[in-house]
């Protein structure tokens, strides 16, 4: 991990950097194949949530939908009251390993 992380610029990791990082850690697939794989994984996850499903990744976390009740909102421009329909929003709950590792990062002074 350290090797490919060192060449990466400081700052948020983007999808293309994630693809590069995964490529650097395996030898069988081309970067192009890894890119397709990452996009397929993200599409699979989005599709599953869009159909009301859950995602459970041990040691990483789970994704599910939370329901937001219908409510009265306001158009910030005109001040008019508008009725907003109920809707679902994606929710992520970090798993134990992720929680612990991120917190160790803090204890380690990063």
């Amino acid at each position: 991990m350290a090797a490919n992380r060192l060449v990466r610029a400081w700052g948020p990791m983007t999808k293309s950097e994630l693809i590069e990082a995964i490529s650097a850690r395996q030898s069988q697939l081309s970067t192009k194949d890894v890119e397709l794989a990452v996009k397929t994984i993200l599409e699979h996850m989005s599709e599953s949530l869009a159909c009301g499903g859950r995602i459970e990744i041990r040691g990483f976390g789970s994704f599910s939908l939370h329901y937001r009740e219908p409510r009265r909102g306001r158009n910030p421009k005109t001040g008019d009251t508008v009725q907003l329909a109920g809707k679902h929003v994606p929710h992520f709950k970090p798993g134990k390993e992720l929680r612990e590792r991120v917190n160790l990062g803090l204890q380690g002074g990063l």
Binding site: M1, P12, K15, L18, I22, Q26, V34, R101
Partner: peptide
């Protein structure tokens, strides 16, 4: 290979977060 890529996908995100770096996956 498929199993390894899925494993690496989540592990790289975890490693990044562990290093106090945000992960931005556009569209997701």
């Amino acid at each position: 290979e498929a199993k390894e890529i899925v494993e690496l996908f989540f592990e790289e995100i975890r490693a990044c977060l562990e290093n106090n770096e945000q992960v931005k996956l556009s569209g997701f």
